[in-house]
């Protein structure tokens, strides 16, 4: 189980994956909006999305686990 962590504090702008979806390294899983900028959050490992911990509009802090990927 590998969490995809937030690189900075911000609001969830889009959730680009669904539970059970296979993702590849570098795939954008979440887009955050912070300080008037859209920040793409990429998967650092390939695997299956086992959990999505956030929804559009949620505020997240740096290092928060956004999505869990199972290899």
């Amino acid at each position: 189980m590998t969490p995809v962590k937030s690189t900075m504090a911000g609001t969830v702008f889009t959730v680009n994956v669904t539970e059970g979806e296979e993702v590849v390294v570098g795939q954008v899983v979440i887009v955050l909006e912070s300080m008037k900028m859209e920040i793409p959050i990429e998967a650092e490992t390939a695997g299956k999305v086992s959990a999505i911990n956030v929804a559009v509009g949620d505020f997240v802090n740096e290092e928060d686990d956004l999505v869990i990927i199972e290899a």
Partner: peptide, 12 residues
């Protein structure tokens, strides 16, 4: 701005 000088990523 509080941001990276090259990537322009915000830096709070």
């Amino acid at each position: 701005y509080a941001e990276h000088p090259v990537t322009f990523m915000p830096s709070p």
